[in-house]
Design a protein around this nucleic acid. Structure first.
Lengths: 157, 157
DNA sequence: TATTGTTATACTCTATAACTATA
DNA sequence: TATAGTTATAGAGTATAACAATA
């Protein structure tokens, strides 16, 4: 068929390289915002998840983000130090901790998220609307049936 | 047409998540090989680049891999310690260092690369040949005109 | 006995800055 | 003055294991 069928490993190399590029790009662009706190893609993703939920338990956060509870602890530590969120005891379960955005975060997160959207758009600017949709679908398809606990939950949000 | 046009940031989240999944998958699968040395995707990529070249300078390696010289130093340190490659002085330039695979690496790298190809195939198993090609093209397109400078060395000037 | 989150620890990939030794 | 590679340092994202408090 396609004599120019790329090898799987080559596809993956390009994918990994793109992800490194994107991570770097987000870090650089977000740093350029010169906010008094430090923002990155993953941090913003956590913040926006909290924003959506209002209050949310750390373990729920871990599930939604597809990362481990221990990793959430680190993010929350850092973001709490930057005064972007606070820990609250869960009144219904004394083992649990609820996370809530601070006023500081609430008053600036919209802005940051809007800016993040711009960065995202510029990263994908080479794709037409149709291509973007197609790309998205292919990404989803790749991780179907295999990502089990990590991916299944949240991909369609 | 597509009223469900995904937001760029969502596409990127899925992409980043995929890359994490893939990195983890490669690490786990390669670790399961139980080789006396430690292999990961990026290490294997460096090794196969050396294999292809026979002998290659560290700075060339950095360019080919799209990473910084300092990063190459770390990889080479680790792989040299694992007896997979050796440093040789470049006879034509006493500042430069040539990298060459050891016999150990040469005798096993084919195997490791073949195994890596299998992992890669399994990671992309959900895509048809045509979809894979399309996915590859889209990835390339995303990074067109923008990554070349970013990937190589524009930032450090 | 199971779950929530933390302390302690680790590791991969990547980077900048300053420096040495050459060129 | 410019290049090759290293020492020193850093940081972002992620993880496992053992444990405390609570359920």
């Amino acid at each position: 068929m396609n004599s120019d069928q790329p090898k799987a490993i080559d596809v993956i190399h390009v994918l990994m390289r793109s992800s490194t590029y994107i991570r770097t790009e987000f870090q650089a662009q977000l740093a350029a915002l010169n906010t008094p706190y430090h923002l990155t893609g993953p941090r913003l993703r956590l913040l926006s998840t909290v924003a959506e939920a209002g209050k949310i338990r750390m373990n729920e956060l871990a599930v939604k983000l597809g990362i481990k509870a221990r990793t959430v602890t680190d993010f929350v530590d850092a973001l709490e130090q930057d005064k972007l969120l606070i820990r609250l005891p869960d009144p219904t379960d004394r083992r649990a901790t609820l996370i809530e955005l601070t006023e500081l975060a609430q008053s600036t997160i919209e802005q940051a998220l809007a800016y993040q959207d711009k960065i995202a758009d510029s990263v994908l600017e080479n794709l037409s609307a149709e291509q973007r949709k197609h790309f998205f679908d292919l990404l989803i398809q790749i991780t179907n049936n295999k990502t089990i606990s990590d991916f299944c939950e949240e991909s369609a949000r």
